[in-house]
Nucleic acid binder design. Structure first.
Ligand SMILES: [Mn+2]
Ligand SMILES: [Mn+2]
Ligand SMILES: [Zn+2]
Ligand SMILES: [Zn+2]
Lengths: 155, 155
DNA sequence: AGCTAACCTTGATCGATTCAAGAAAGCGGA
DNA sequence: TCCGCTTTCTTGAATCGATCAAGGTTAGCT
């Protein structure tokens, strides 16, 4: 979890203006990996007071475009964000509660980019999403708790 | 592309009642792999006259639950459907035009289900989505044509 | 033919995201 | 430090895919 100063540096180095919403949102994403936009809005408001939902959407897009955060969109889920970028890691999504955990690239890095029979496509990225049941949900019985903030490092 | 009789058999074998909307939608999905719901609605109406949008949604869900079709949801795209099921194949999505092509599972089948360090999750599926540029878009310059019907077997 | 659960139609509603217009604020230069 | 330009933020409406809800219709079975 970067300090305030480090967050500011990150923004400046990327050529982004340093604003209160940006500091707040970037901090929230760092502290709550894999949180969805709604959760990020909530956290940002708790920590820094009033921020418009539109500002958060704009900031998330700016940060994503700048490469400071990464957006992930598991099927059937809203967009989620994380500050762990540049390492091409993958994710495990719990079918029961939606919890997300990180998974390092399965076999080095190469196999992910070499589909068999690419139909003439020039492939530049491979996204892998594993699905299953998280530790909590395999002990508890399949429950429908869906708090993306509370459950994402449960492992 | 299955005949009318074959489509009917598919429905019956799955325990689904044979209705006009179901025949039409199932046929449309078979003929237009990776089409989105809107396109399926259009095709269905062209081929079989009036059908409510809700009926199409209901049918797609019924067919999906029955395992006759598979739903895919590339990030940033609406739901798409295909009748190729049960073979765990993957997809390549064109960044420029959204065209989707099939990719057989990269290395047999095993590696897709063995993430390194699974955080205690019990994994039962691995979905892989490749991203890149399709043949059409690499010759043409990056254009913004987005017709999911016209461009999905372009390879 | 008659029953009944399953199905379809219509129209409203939802939730996430985006659009649009004006106000506010960051930042480089004077 | 102050200006001015540009980006960014606020407010509020709008869009889009998908779902909900209520009622009429129909397929499949007896
Ligand atoms: Mn991650
Ligand atoms: Mn396919
Ligand atoms: Zn879980
Ligand atoms: Zn393309």
């Amino acid at each position: 979890m970067p300090t305030t100063i480090e967050l500011e540096s990150l923004l400046r180095e990327t050529g982004l203006r340093v604003t209160r919403p940006r500091m707040a949102v970037l901090g929230a994403v760092c502290e709550h990996p894999h949180a969805d936009t709604g959760s990020i809005i909530d956290v940002t408001r708790e920590d820094f007071g009033a921020v418009s939902h539109q500002a958060v959407y704009d900031v998330l897009r700016a940060l994503t475009d700048a490469g400071l955060v990464r957006q992930i969109q598991p099927a059937g889920s809203v967009a989620r964000y994380e500050s762990r970028v540049g390492d091409n890691h993958h994710h495990i999504v719990c079918r029961a509660c939606g919890a997300i955990a990180d998974v390092d690239c399965a076999v080095g890095e190469a196999p992910c980019l070499t589909p068999s029979g690419n139909h003439g496509y020039v492939v530049d990225e491979a996204e892998v999403i594993y699905r299953g049941i998280c530790p909590d949900c395999s002990t508890d019985y399949p429950s429908e708790k869906n708090d993306p903030l509370r459950k994402e490092t449960s492992a």
